[in-house]
Write a protein that binds this DNA or RNA. Structure first.
Length: 441
RNA sequence: GUGGAUGUAGCUCAGUCGGUUAGAGCGCCUGGUUGUGGCCCAGGAGGUCGUGGGUUCAAGUCCCAUCUUCCACCCCA
């Protein structure tokens, strides 16, 4: 009687061909984060349920995995973390003496109980890569986050990415200018956010279906359709006359844009988009999100914004904060779909094949010296025929095989076989060790 | 959470109106090669037809239930 091996839907095993690119990208993330002065942090996978509830909005609340361990006492109920931002807020509130601004990065999995759709890069367990700056209220902190994200997207050579930017206060002002109260904000934003998917008519229908009056729905759409972009927002300013908060939000966006460009981000990657809303409820200021036009079915690869009120929920006094989440799994999926080449399932560069067992110790010695020279090297552990050893190298994608038998050992010449290019050459062992790059490209 | 599909060999799938021992391609193993992978040839292993029940002389095929996975929506990374 064997146990059926299976995986919970929405979770995955990552095989070597998945992990090798993932490790590469993670290394780039860490290097870039530290280049901007962000320091690493980790938090536990499980948190008290009350830490997480009420921070993400109604939708998000439903998607939190609750643990049933000792859950009879409400104060002790546990849950798996839903994101990395709320745990950060909790952490900051528990260390109020930290020197601010606190710039941290965090690379850990999170869990969400929604319906998986691998094709869209949507899973129940996935890796988030967060950068956040706590304790800086100005636009410089926002701009640094956006610029860092843009930096990474460029470094990963994701073509044509666009960072859409908007402002929660500006959205609130537009809703108000359309004659609606703050209670309609969520409904309107929810509808408007889908513009590129369901079109203007769809947005209108959805607003009406949720009880927004026709006049107000039309007013919202008219405002959002204003032809504005960074550096050209006069039309919007005119419509916000007398609305102090709205004008302030708009000015903040313009300043943010200037600073982002000042940090070296090419203008084509940054776009003012009044229809960007984002569902998480803790955002209070500028918000942003990145999608790839070449992969429209995939959700956002990266998203973030300012949340000046979240830490206060734990601390009792507000500390301003801004951050972004990079969706590592989606980025990897995107890279695999856009650049399917360069697949590898092993880090090994060289296999030292053993033609006869009498040369075993010599093969081991050669492998050892190659490793000392920094060449990732394997030996066929259980031997077998040379044919089988070569087949192993072929199937694993090991690019080079050194064939070492009695003849080679006697003359000091080994055969270096190039699996992908084909062909092989004789090489002097000492020459090989002195300049391995000449033989193993 | 809403709606629609799916399930036959390790993978992708075929299987007629319900009818005898369930097939193909790819992959895998062995051999053809004594010290050389891929290509070719020969042979071989591998299936409770997702699961449970029902109809029938007879079910991979029809019915019901259930599980699984996938797609779209919602929302997000």
């Amino acid at each position: 009687m064997t146990i059926q091996p299976r995986l919970y839907n929405g979770t995955r095993d990552l095989l070597p061909q998945d992990m090798l690119p993932k490790e590469d990208v993670l290394a780039q993330f860490r290097a870039s984060f530290q280049l901007y002065g962000f320091a690493p942090v980790e938090t536990p996978a499980m948190e008290y349920l009350e830490i997480l509830t009420g921070k993400y909005g109604d939708e998000g609340n439903q998607l939190i995995y609750r643990l049933d361990y000792r859950n009879e006492d409400p104060a002790r109920r546990l849950a798996l973390r839903y994101d990395l931002t709320v745990p950060l807020a909790r952490l900051v509130a528990m260390h109020p003496d930290m020197p601010l601004p606190f710039k941290r990065y965090q690379l850990q999995p999170v869990w969400r109980a929604d319906r998986p759709q691998p094709h869209q890069g949507r899973y129940r367990e996935f890796m988030q890569c967060d950068i956040d700056t706590v304790g800086a209220q100005g636009r410089a902190a926002d701009a640094e986050i956006v610029a860092l994200c843009a930096d990474l997207m460029r470094r990963l050579e994701l073509p044509g990415f666009v960072i859409r930017i908007n402002h929660r206060q500006l959205l609130a002002a537009l809703v108000e200018q359309a004659g609606l109260g703050p209670e309609s904000e969520a409904t309107v934003c929810g509808a408007v956010d889908k513009l590129d998917k369901i079109g203007a008519d769809g947005v209108r229908r959805e607003m009406l279906a949720h009880g927004i009056p026709v006049a107000a729905a039309d007013a919202v759409q008219e405002l959002l359709n204003l032809p504005v972009q960074f550096g050209d927002t006069q039309l919007l300013q005119d419509r916000l006359q007398g609305h102090e908060a709205g004008l302030k939000a708009l000015a903040e966006l313009e300043e943010l844009h200037r600073l982002v460009l000042g940090l070296g981000v090419p203008a084509e990657h940054v776009k003012l988009d009044l229809t960007l809303a984002r569902g998480l409820s803790y955002y209070t200021g500028p918000i942003f999100e990145t999608v790839l036009p070449s992969l429209p079915h995939m959700g956002s690869l990266m998203g973030g914004g300012r949340y000046d009120g979240l830490i206060g929920m734990f601390l009792g006094r507000d500390i301003p904060a801004v951050g972004a989440t990079l969706g590592l799994d989606r980025i990897l999926t995107a890279l695999a779909q856009l650049k399917p080449h360069a697949q590898r399932s092993t880090p090994t560069r060289v296999l030292v094949a053993r033609a006869f067992s009498e040369t075993d110790t010599q093969a081991l010695a050669l492998a050892g010296r190659l490793r000392q020279a920094g060449i990732p090297t394997e030996i066929p552990l259980d031997g077998g025929k040379l044919k089988k050893q070569l087949s192993y190298a072929d199937r694993k994608g090991i690019p080079h095989v050194v064939v070492l038998g009695p003849d080679e050992w006697a003359t000091g010449q080994v055969q270096v076989k190039h699996m992908q290019a084909g062909g092989q050459e004789a090489a002097d062992v000492e020459a090989l060790l002195a300049a391995p790059a000449r033989f193993f490209l």
